[in-house]
């Protein structure tokens, strides 16, 4: 069985073989990319639109490179969400996209569920590139690919996801993917940044870094936005770093060969110490970026095949 959905809106609900298929295909794209070859006929004549309602140079560029490597015509659209009636903009945009015969639509939006709403209204296959605090499926796929290539498997690994889990779509997608693939997932952070009933997602909840990291194979750090401190969820950056920032001392609790990951962009000195982030023995943060392109190529490839060529 390969991937059976029209869109990629969320990891939640995907079956292990679907995830496995995407990772296997991405693996082949890693090799292709490293060999310097291209496959520019695969998406020739197809239009990929990067529709970003929220700034993200990193993710947008990654999708752009992935699309271009497969030969698609890539168009970037940035839409300001500062206008008063955001929803109207979203559906107006959907109507515009239909008129332009877009084939693949990559959406980033600051509201949970916005890609689901768009998927109901557009003809294109929709790829969620991050929606509010809901999901960020391609980030979870690239994280899984990074882990799988380094550790040879996902099953049985202990993965500690640390920091602002409450507001993190990266955390949610990773939790769904890793638990689906048989990893043991822990979430670690202060109670004010932990979503309600987090344990119901099949994870163990910790409020202490050393305990949460004990014996971990993977330490996945999350970005803490400054806004969280302004809203009183965390008293201060220095207090956060003291208790939840990843430094060498806290990392010592994890397995000696534990890998450090971060979805970027990093707040050095807030959630992660530079010495750890830049440690070539432990940090795979740069590798994550490379995997991102391969995973997105696999997703674009799969979704375009899923629809059948004649539909374009």
């Amino acid at each position: 069985m390969s991937y059976r959905q029209k869109h990629l809106l969320a990891i939640e609900g995907l079956y292990p073989p679907e995830i496995g298929h995407l990772l296997d295909l991405a693996e082949s794209y890693v090799l292709l990319n490293r060999s310097g070859k291209t496959q520019r006929d695969l998406l020739r004549g197809r239009t990929l639109i990067n529709l970003f309602f929220e700034d993200s140079t990193r993710t947008r560029t990654s999708f752009e490179i992935a699309g271009k490597r497969l030969g698609a015509d890539v168009i970037n659209m940035s839409v300001s969400t500062s206008s008063v009636n955001k929803g109207e903009t979203l559906l107006d945009t959907a109507a515009t996209l239909n008129a332009m015969h877009c084939d693949l639509l990559v959406v980033r939006h600051d509201q949970s569920g916005a890609p689901n709403l768009l998927a109901q209204k557009v003809d294109a296959a929709v790829i969620n590139a991050g929606d509010g605090t809901h999901e960020h499926p391609t980030q979870a796929l690239l994280d899984a690919l990074t882990i799988r290539r380094r550790k040879g498997r996902l099953e049985g690994l202990i993965v500690a996801i640390c920091g602002d889990v409450l507001h993190s779509r990266v955390a949610r997608s990773n939790i769904h993917l890793l638990t689906t693939m048989g990893s043991r997932v822990r979430v670690v952070g202060p109670p004010t940044l932990m979503p309600a009933e987090a344990a119901r997602l099949g994870v163990e909840v910790f409020h202490d870094m050393e305990r949460g990291l004990a014996g971990a194979d993977i330490v996945m750090m999350l970005r803490l936005q400054r806004e969280r401190m302004q809203r009183g969820l965390v008293p201060s950056a220095r207090e956060y770093f003291r208790f939840f920032g990843l430094d060498a001392a806290k990392l010592a609790a994890a397995k000696p060969d534990a890998l450090v990951m971060h979805p970027g962009p990093m707040n050095r000195g807030v959630e992660i110490d530079s010495a750890v982030a830049d440690d070539p023995q432990r940090s795979v943060i740069r590798e994550q970026v490379e995997m991102g392109v391969a995973v997105r190529m696999a997703v674009l490839d799969t979704l375009s095949r899923g629809r059948g060529r004649n539909e374009f």
């Binding site: 939640e12 949970s112 605090t133 979503p195 119901r200 997602l201």
Partner: peptide
Amino acid sequence: ELATRLGL
């Protein structure tokens, strides 16, 4: 749990 899953 549901709001957590939906990110709401």
